[in-house]
Every structure is written in C-alpha cells, then in structure tokens.
C-alpha cells in the first residue's frame, strides 16, 4: 500500500534523483556502446587507413566486406575462415563430449578418484596457461603435428584436450537435477549409460547447448595458442590471427577497414550466441558460487 502511494506521488527530490540516475545510465550506456558503434561505422568507411582526421567517416561503402571475402592474395581471409570453421566443428564435438562426460561423472557417480580429480583440477587451474602451452608446442612437434595441415589437428587437440578441467558450470547444472529421478530410472531398469543419455541429457538441454556453443566459439576468439602453434604457416592461420595481422604495421593502412568488417562479421553470430547464453552463464555462476 505504502509503496503504491509513494509511486503515484513522487516527491520533487525523488524525481530529481530518478532523473540523475537515468541520465547517468544513459551516459554510461553511451560509453559502453560507442566503441562498438564506431567499429561498425569504420567497417563501412570508404577511405582507408587506421587513423583519420575525422571521427565520423567521410564516405560509406560496402567494399570492405567484399574485399575481405574475395582478396586471397595478401591475407587469405576466406581460407582462414574455412580453417577456423573446420577446427571449431571438431573442437566442438570433442570438448562437448569431454565436458559433459566429466561433469556427469563428477555429479552423479561416486568413485574414489572423484575428490582427487576435483582437487587436481583446482591446482592445475592455478598454473598460468602459457606454461603448458610452450611445452605443448614441443610435444606436438615431437608428434609431427606442427607442420602443414597437421597443424589443424594440433590445434584441435590443444583446444579440446584439457576441456575436461572446465566442468564446474555443467556439473553445477547436473547437481540441480533431483537424484530420485536417476534412482527411479535405475529401478525401472536403466543402466547408468541409459540414465545419462535418456534422462540426464534431455533434461539438460540448456547446458548442452551452452557447452556446444562455448566450445564452438573458442577457436574463433583465441589468437595466442593459434599464433604459437601456427608460427609462420600462413595457410593454416585462423580468423583471430588474421584479424590480429591486419593491425600489424605492414598491413594496417590497407586492411584496417577490412579488419573492422571482419570483426563485425565474426562478432555478430558470437554476440547473438552470447546474449542467448547469458542466462545459463548467470545460472552456472550462481551454482558455482553456491557450491
């Protein structure tokens, strides 16, 4: 009751506060959206070069996008796109299987290695990622996976091999499914495998989608591992290295607007996926905080 009254008859002071809050939010929102707005503008800019004397472009064109997908001579973006797509598809299959398997086992099964595994995962998480990466390169080299198209296999391995350590979010989700549903299925005659595939998986669609998407996105946005493992093999570059290269001194004048176009091209699907997934991200985090 009280609240209703207050709402209908805002005091002048309250109104001022509300106005200021909304003004502040508007300013902040502009700060946050401006760089994204600017990159979209740049991707349509007609004049080349990274640095211009005006903030807004003088002319607009669609040629940056066309150049990005047709110019195969200097920086072969279509090829990079294909490379990344292949890697992403395989990586997605393996990582999803790894993450879901480990999460399900840790959430639903009880075995002696369970606690040690979780502790080991925590300890390994404290090492800087690069430490393993440099040595991974040597191991891949010893296995002959650092030359030619074998680099793709190398990258797939690097991206998916250790995903079994990232079980927290999916495990948190599985933990929320009542155990009695599993038990009912077991009494109904299901094996653990059947519980996994016919009960838990259908009930966990959101987290399965989340896992598939995150593992699909990973190769598109990583440039560090890719750079270390590809080294100078230009025909094996992924999109991220390509974009990174476009900003290097030798290319930046010619390619800067194409970089913007490329950034827009890969950002749109990822942004859509991310906005769709943020719900699971929040839920997963809440779960991780709780447990």
């Amino acid at each position: 009751m009280n609240n209703e009254l207050e709402k209908n008859k805002l005091s002048p002071r309250r109104r001022l506060v509300n106005f200021l809050v909304h003004l502040m939010l508007a300013v902040l929102a502009i700060i946050w959206v401006l760089p994204i707005f600017w990159i979209v503008l740049t991707s349509f800019r007609a004049e080349p070069g990274a640095y211009t004397s005006t903030f807004l472009p003088k002319g607009y064109t669609f040629n940056n996008y066309i150049k990005l997908f047709t110019d195969r001579n200097v920086l072969n973006f279509p090829k990079m796109f294909l490379n990344t797509l292949i890697i992403a598809i395989f990586c997605c299959i393996f990582s999803t299987f790894f993450v879901l398997s480990v999460s399900y086992s840790l959430s639903r099964m009880r075995f002696g290695f369970r606690k040690p595994y979780m502790n080991i995962a925590m300890i390994l998480g404290l090492f800087p990622g690069f430490m393993a990466m440099v040595a991974q390169y040597f191991i891949l080299k010893a296995l002959g996976l650092t030359e030619g198209s074998a680099i793709r296999i190398g990258l797939i391995i690097v991206y998916s091999a250790c995903t079994g350590l990232g079980f927290q979010i999916a495990k948190g989700f599985f933990d929320t499914i009542p155990r009695s549903i599993d038990e009912a299925a077991i009494i109904d005659g299901a094996t653990q495998w059947q519980v996994f595939t016919r009960i838990t998986m259908p009930l966990s669609k959101p987290i399965v989608i989340y896992t598939v998407m995150t593992s699909f996105i990973a190769p598109w946005v990583d440039f560090v591992f890719a750079k270390v493992i590809c080294r100078a093999n230009a025909d094996q570059f992924t999109v991220a290295i390509g974009l990174w290269n476009m900003l290097q001194k030798e290319y930046i004048y010619q390619w800067y607007t194409c970089f913007a176009a490329g950034a827009v091209v890969i950002s749109i699907p990822i942004a859509i996926l991310f906005i769709y997934m943020q719900r699971f991200y929040v839920e997963g985090m809440a779960g991780a905080v709780k447990g």
């Binding site: 009542p178 009695s180 549903i181 038990e183 009912a184 299925a185 077991i186 009494i187 109904d188 005659g189 299901a190 094996t191 009960i199 259908p202 009930l203």
Partner: peptide
C-alpha cells in the same frame, strides 16, 4: 542390481521424467 530384483518403487517427490 536393482533392475534384476523385480521391484518397483514410488518416490516421495514422484520422480517422474519431466521431458
């Protein structure tokens, strides 16, 4: 194994398969 005991069970929270 439970499935070979020829038993059935009704749970307090029903434990129906929601999907």
């Amino acid at each position: 194994e439970p499935k070979d005991r020829d038993i059935a069970m009704v749970f307090q929270n029903y434990a129906l398969y929601p999907h």
